[in-house]
C-alpha cells in the first residue's frame, strides 16, 4: 500500500496505535471517577510546559510532561480539599494552565512550533518522541494490567476499596502520574485541544456495546485503534489534519453506534409486539 511506503506514515501508525491502546485505559478510569474533563485540563496545562520548553530550549514534550505532572497532582490536592465538588478542581487547574500558557506563549521565539502542539502533528514525530511514546506505552499498559482490579475498585467506590485493603493513595498517585505522562505525550501527536476526546469518546462508544467492565476496557481500546487507523487513512488520502480527523472519526463512530442501537431497540420492540399480538 502506498501509504506505508513512507517512513513518516509508518511512524505515525505505530505512534497512533500505541496511544490508542493506552489512552482509553486511562480514559475508562477517568470517566468512571467522574473526572472526564481531566484530560482537557491536563492537555491545556501541558501547553504551558510546551511554551516553557520552547523558551528554555528544552524538548517541549519534556516540558509538557513536567507541567502535566504538576497539574495532575494539583487537581488531586484540590479534589481532596473539596471532595463534593471534584470537578471544580479540574476547572481551577485548567484556568491556571491556560492563563500560564497564554502568558508564556508571548515569549516563545517560534510560534509555529507552539501552534503544532495545539492540533498535534503525528506525521512529524521525531525519533526521540517515537522512543518516548514506545517507553510511555509499555509503562502505562504494564501498570494498567498490574493495577487492573485496584483501579476498577477505586473507580467503583473509593471508600469500599480502602476498607478492603486497597492502598488507595498509592494507586491514585501512580494513576495520576500515568495520566499526566500519557496526556503530555498524546498532546504532541493528536494535539492538546483533542487529547480529552481521545480519552472519552472510545469509552462512550464502548458503553454502547459492552456488557461488563472487562468488555468496556477491551471495546474502548478497539474503538480507539479503529478510529486512529481510519482517521490516519482518511487524513492521508484526503489531505486532512490527522489529529482532527482521528477525533472526528471517533465521534462519527459514536453517532453510528447510537443510530444502530436505536434501530435494534426499535426492531426488538416491534418483534416483541408482534409476538404479543400472535399470542392473543
Amino acid at each position: 500500500m502506498e501509504i506505508f511506503e513512507f517512513a513518516f506514515m509508518r511512524k505515525a501508525f505505530l505512534v497512533g496505535i500505541l496511544l490508542a491502546v493506552i489512552i482509553p485505559c486511562i480514559g475508562v478510569i477517568v470517566v468512571f471517577k467522574r473526572l472526564s474533563m481531566i484530560g482537557d485540563a491536563l492537555s491545556h496545562t501541558s501547553l504551558a510546559g510546551v511554551a516553557a520548553g520552547l523558551i528554555g530550549n528544552i524538548n517541549p514534550v519534556v516540558g509538557a510532561m513536567i507541567a502535566c505532572t504538576g497539574a495532575a497532582f494539583g487537581i488531586e490536592a484540590i479534589r481532596k480539599k473539596i471532595p463534593r465538588y471534584a470537578e471544580m478542581s479540574i476547572a481551577i487547574m485548567m484556568s491556571a494552565g491556560v492563563g500560564l500558557a497564554g502568558i508564556l506563549s508571548g515569549f516563545v521565539p517560534n510560534a509555529a512550533g507552539f501552534n503544532s502542539f495545539l492540533f498535534g502533528s503525528i506525521v512529524a514525530i521525531s525519533d526521540f518522541e517515537l522512543k518516548l511514546v514506545v517507553t510511555v506505552s509499555i509503562i502505562v499498559a504494564g501498570c494498567f494490567l498490574l493495577f487492573y482490579k485496584e483501579l476498577c475498585y477505586i473507580a467503583f467506590d473509593e471508600n469500599s476499596a480502602r476498607l478492603s485493603g486497597v492502598p488507595v493513595d498509592l494507586v491514585n498517585f501512580i494513576f495520576t502520574l500515568l495520566t499526566a505522562v500519557t496526556v503530555s505525550v498524546a498532546a504532541r501527536t493528536v494535539g492538546a485541544l483533542m487529547v480529552s476526546s481521545l480519552m472519552v469518546v472510545p469509552v462512550a462508544c464502548s458503553l454502547q456495546v459492552a456488557k461488563s467492565y472487562r468488555q468496556t476496557v477491551c471495546w474502548s481500546i478497539t474503538f480507539a485503534v479503529l478510529s486512529t487507523g481510519v482517521g490516519l487513512f482518511v487524513a492521508y488520502y484526503r489531505g486532512l489534519k490527522p489529529g482532527g480527523t482521528i477525533v472526528l472519526t471517533g465521534v462519527l463512530l459514536l453517532f453510528l453506534l447510537f443510530f444502530i442501537k436505536a434501530v435494534v431497540k426499535k426492531f426488538r420492540r416491534n418483534a416483541s409486539k408482534m409476538v404479543g399480538t400472535q399470542a392473543t
Binding site: 468512571f32 482490579k149 485496584e150 476498577c152 475498585y153 473507580a155 467503583f156 469500599s160 476499596a161 478492603s164 485493603g165 486497597v166 458503553l207 459492552a210 456488557k211 461488563s212 467492565y213 472487562r214 468488555q215 468496556t216
Partner: peptide, 14 residues
C-alpha cells in the same frame, strides 16, 4: 458502573 454483579463481588476479595 459498567461491571457485572460477579465482577463487583470478586473485587471485594482483594
Amino acid at each position: 458502573f459498567p461491571a457485572t454483579a460477579k465482577e463487583i463481588v470478586t473485587l471485594s476479595e482483594f
